[in-house]
C-alpha cells in the first residue's frame, strides 16, 4: 500500500463523497453491479492514455500526440487484420495474424514514441510543439491510409480484449492494472524512472551529475508511446473498429486526470496511485451524472471547474505553507 499523503487523503475523501452523494441521489440505478461493471469497461482506455500523458508531464513536458498515436497504432493493426482475417468466419481468427497485428501496433507506437523523443531530446524542440507537430503528422497519416473510412469488423480475439471478462473481472480492467503496475515499477524501481523525477525538476543539475537527459527523455516518450498504443488496441476492441479521429476529446481529460491526481505540470512530482485515484473519481462522476440524466456537456464543464478548483486549492495551500 503506498503511503497516504494529504493529497491522496483528499482524493479518497472526494471519492467517498462522490460515491455517497450519487448513491443518495439515485439509489436504484447507481448502486448496481451493472453500473460498476460499465465503469470498469470504460475506465481502461482513458487510464492508459492518462498514464501516457503522466510520464511526459513528470519530465516537465506534455504529449499532445497520445490520441493520434493510439489511433495510428490501432489502424496499423486493423489494416493487417482486415487484410488477413474475416470476422464473419469464426475459425479465421487465426492466432498468428492476431499476434502479427498486435506486434505491428506496438511497433508503430514505439516508433512514434522514439520519434517524439528524438524531436525533443536531440533537436531540442519544446515538448508541446514537438508533440503538436507529430499529432498533426499522425492525424494526417491516419487520414491518408484510411481515406477517412472506418475499418471495422474485428475478430473475436480482438473483441475480447476490450469486452471480455476473466473470472468475472472485465479484461480491460485487468489490462489497466497490469499496465499501472508496470509503470509503477518503471518509475520506482529502475534508474531511468528515478532520473525522470530529478530531470523533471532540474535538468541542468542532472546533466551536471553525469545523467544523460537525452536518454531519459527518449525513454520517457517511448513509454508514453507504448502506453498510447496499448490504449489504441483497447479502443479498437471496444469500438470494434479503427478510424482516424477516434477519442480526440480524451486528450484534455487526460491532462485533467493528471492534474487532479497530483502530477505537477511543471514536472518532478506525482505517482501512479494518485493518477488511478483521480481516474476512478472522474469515472464515478461521469457515470453517476450520466445516470442522473445530466448532459455530458455539463459534465465537460464540470471537469473544467474541478480542474480550476484543484489548482486554486494548491495555490492557497502552498501560500499558507509559505506563511506558516
Amino acid at each position: 500500500m503506498p503511503e497516504l499523503n494529504s493529497e491522496k487523503k483528499a482524493l479518497l475523501g472526494i471519492l467517498a463523497g462522490a460515491l455517497l452523494i450519487l448513491s443518495l441521489l439515485s439509489p436504484d440505478s447507481f448502486l448496481t453491479v451493472g453500473t460498476f461493471q460499465g465503469m470498469a469497461f470504460q475506465l481502461p482506455e482513458l487510464g492508459l492514455l492518462s498514464m501516457a500523458m503522466m510520464v511526459a508531464m513528470l519530465t516537465g513536458g506534455i504529449n499532445l500526440s497520445i490520441i493520434s498515436t493510439a489511433n495510428i497504432s490501432a489502424i496499423s493493426a486493423a489494416l493487417i487484420l482486415s487484410r488477413f482475417v474475416n470476422p464473419d468466419v469464426p475459425a479465421s481468427g487465426d492466432a498468428g495474424y492476431l499476434f502479427l497485428a498486435l506486434v505491428a501496433a506496438v511497433l508503430v507506437a514505439a516508433f512514434v514514441g522514439l520519434f517524439n523523443g528524438f524531436l525533443i531530446a536531440i533537436l531540442d524542440i519544446p515538448p508541446i510543439l514537438a508533440t503538436l507537430g507529430s499529432m498533426k503528422l499522425l492525424q494526417g497519416l491516419a487520414f491518408i491510409v484510411t481515406k477517412g473510412y472506418v475499418i471495422s469488423g474485428m475478430p473475436a480475439g480482438i473483441v475480447y480484449i476490450g469486452n471480455g471478462s476473466l473470472a468475472g473481472i472485465p479484461f480491460p480492467l485487468i489490462l489497466l492494472l497490469v499496465f499501472a503496475v508496470l509503470l509503477s515499477i518503471y518509475l520506482k524501481h529502475t534508474p531511468a524512472g528515478f532520473t525522470t523525477f530529478l530531470m523533471g525538476s532540474n535538468p541542468i543539475a542532472t546533466r551536471f551529475s553525469g545523467v544523460s537527459n537525452e536518454k531519459t527523455i527518449i525513454l520517457t516518450y517511448l513509454v508514453s508511446g507504448l502506453f498510447s498504443g496499448a490504449a489504441g488496441i483497447v479502443m479498437m476492441s471496444r469500438f470494434n473498429s479503427a478510424k482516424a479521429g477516434y477519442g480526440e476529446s480524451y486528450l484534455l481529460v487526460t491532462v485533467l486526470a493528471c492534474v487532479l491526481g497530483g502530477i505537477k505540470s511543471e514536472g518532478g512530482f506525482g505517482d501512479v496511485a494518485g493518477l488511478m485515484l483521480s481516474l476512478v473519481i472522474l469515472q464515478v462522476l461521469s457515470s453517476g451524472l450520466n445516470l442522473l440524466g445530466i448532459s455530458s456537456f455539463l459534465t465537460l464543464a464540470l471537469w473544467g471547474a474541478i480542474m480550476i478548483a484543484v489548482m486554486l486549492m494548491q495555490f492557497f495551500f502552498s501560500r499558507k505553507q509559505r506563511i506558516v
Binding site: 525538476s201 543539475a205 551536471f208
Partner: peptide, 9 residues
C-alpha cells in the same frame, strides 16, 4: 542552486 542540486527533490 542550479547546477549542483535539484532543490525541490
Amino acid at each position: 542552486l542550479t547546477q549542483g542540486l535539484v532543490m525541490p527533490q
